[in-house]
């Protein structure tokens, strides 16, 4: 299996904003937030098609979301703010209060694992 290094950026999207008003446990929220936007060539390199799950790992943890084609440069991947990206963000704020939500190093690969639901992530958090 090919593992590729990327720079991970997270941010607001309009769809994420609109669907969180519907509800965090809604289908819309899952569809719009449990995703990663990648360069098409990067997707080819790790062997995934639009809509297939990919695993993102950092030194802080890993998460599985569906991938989507996007205009980002090779080597960069974008995820909407939300619980999925939070699983790979470190908690060190370097004395500022602000975690490194943008620009973290991550590895991406194809995976057979399922995308967790919000409920499953909450269970994970509760189990600690």
């Amino acid at each position: 299996m090919i593992r590729m290094e990327v720079v991970l950026i997270s941010g607001r999207t309009a769809k994420q904003g609109a669907s969180l008003e519907v509800g965090k446990t809604s289908e819309e929220y899952f569809e719009n937030v449990a995703v990663i936007m990648m360069n098409e060539d990067d997707m080819k390199e790790i062997g995934v098609q639009e809509g297939e799950p990919v695993k993102i790992s950092t030194e802080f943890g890993s998460t599985v979301v569906k991938c989507k084609k996007s205009e980002v440069n090779r080597g960069i991947a974008f995820m909407p703010y939300g619980p999925w990206v939070n699983m790979v963000i470190g908690m060190d704020t370097h004395g500022t209060g602000m975690p490194s939500y943008k620009g973290a190093k991550a590895e991406i690969s194809a995976t057979d694992e399922n995308v967790l639901t919000v409920g499953e992530i909450v269970d994970l958090i509760r189990r600690g």
Binding site: K24, F60, Y81, G82, N86, M87, G90, M91, P99, R126
Partner: peptide, 17 residues
């Protein structure tokens, strides 16, 4: 606010405890 949807997982874990 909804820190569980915006904080790093490890920070959220303490909130659950």
């Amino acid at each position: 606010a909804d820190p569980l949807s915006s904080f790093p997982l490890r920070a959220s874990e303490h909130l659950a405890k």
